[in-house]
Design a protein around this nucleic acid. Structure first.
Length: 291
DNA sequence: CGTCAGGTAGCCA
DNA sequence: TGGCTACCTGAC
């Protein structure tokens, strides 16, 4: 089993911060399905043990070639995010497969992580080929063009998203997705938003998690809450304004800041007792007293 | 059982 | 640009 030593990397934070969905855990091992490969991996301190992919693939996939400490320095603008960065040190934004990322986030609208995972597993089992790594069996993610039955897509329990998935399957090619890398952030985003079902948030997720646009700052419900509470003192701010604030305030690597804030606010809310919650504002206020 | 969930499109002011 | 709502369906 190949091993590598790494620094400033936390496997669990990276896998469980909501950026990817096809991950399963078995004891201290994780299995990740990336298109048609299965990656088996575990971390022990500064050592990664892995199987199923090459070392080069691994380093690229987990973005271990990025200047991590420099990135953290750039986004560390205030005590609140400093706290989040310290708590989740080693969280990386990985380089997902763009096509799988498009479909994943089309499934994400008005859903939750368990449901998105279910949709992706069903789509894979209905349209993808069976794959195996030793005893671990699963289904490869279908290729562009393979999600060609509306009924099948519906059977994956995708609901109102089925039409979007069908159309994306007809519109999107690998070449199209790769061509986005050559464009500016705003041009690439505009091109993605031409696909029905992809709006600002989903486009930003695709750009950030799979196409290397680290300045993308997706505004989801959690980020909206934490920005409004912490940075705007509960004033109601439009998503467009919040997005502009995020990219301007955190800069070139705003997407990393987004991910740290997401983890920080989400986990502190999940850990608090829902029965005694009177509102999210109160919970986030509690959060602020942490620093 | 009701409500809600990583949003978007379409429609209106 | 901003505000509103329908939309499928599994989780909680």
């Amino acid at each position: 089993m190949p091993k590598i030593r790494i620094q400033d990397f936390h496997l669990e934070h990276t896998l469980l911060c909501g950026q990817l969905f096809r991950v399963t855990r078995q004891d201290d091992w994780y299995h990740i399905i990336v298109r048609d490969r299965i990656l088996k991996i575990r971390q022990r301190f500064d050592c990664l043990e892995f199987h199923g992919v090459s070392k080069e693939f691994l380093l690229h996939y987990f973005a271990l070639d990025e200047p991590y400490i420099a990135i953290l320095t750039q986004i560390n603008k205030d005590p609140y995010i400093d706290n989040a960065i310290k708590k989740y040190h080693g969280l990386r934004i990985i380089r997902q497969d763009p096509w799988e990322c498009v479909i994943s986030f089309l499934c994400s609208s008005a859903a939750n992580i368990p449901k998105i995972t279910l949709n992706l597993e069903l789509l894979s089992s209905l349209f993808g080929k069976r794959i195996r790594l030793n005893k671990f069996e699963g289904y490869a993610f279908p290729n562009p063009g393979d999600l060609n039955s509306y009924q099948g897509i519906l059977m994956a329990k995708t609901g109102f998203r089925a039409g979007y998935i069908k159309t994306a399957n007809e519109l999107v090619t690998e070449e199209f997705l790769q061509s986005l890398r050559k464009l500016s952030y705003s041009e690439a985003k505009k091109a993605l938003k031409n696909i029905p079902g992809i709006g600002d948030k989903i486009a930003d997720c695709i750009l950030l998690f799979s196409l290397g646009f680290s300045e993308a700052f997706p505004i989801d419900i959690w980020i909206r809450r934490v920005l409004q509470e912490v940075y705007f003192k509960n004033r109601l701010i439009s998503d467009k304004h919040l997005r502009d604030f995020g990219t301007n305030y955190f800069g070139k690597y705003a997407g990393y800041a987004q991910q740290f804030l997401y983890m920080f606010v989400r986990n502190s809310i999940l850990k608090s007792d829902r029965r005694t919650q009177e509102g999210l504002g109160k919970v986030i206020s509690k959060d602020r007293t942490l620093f």
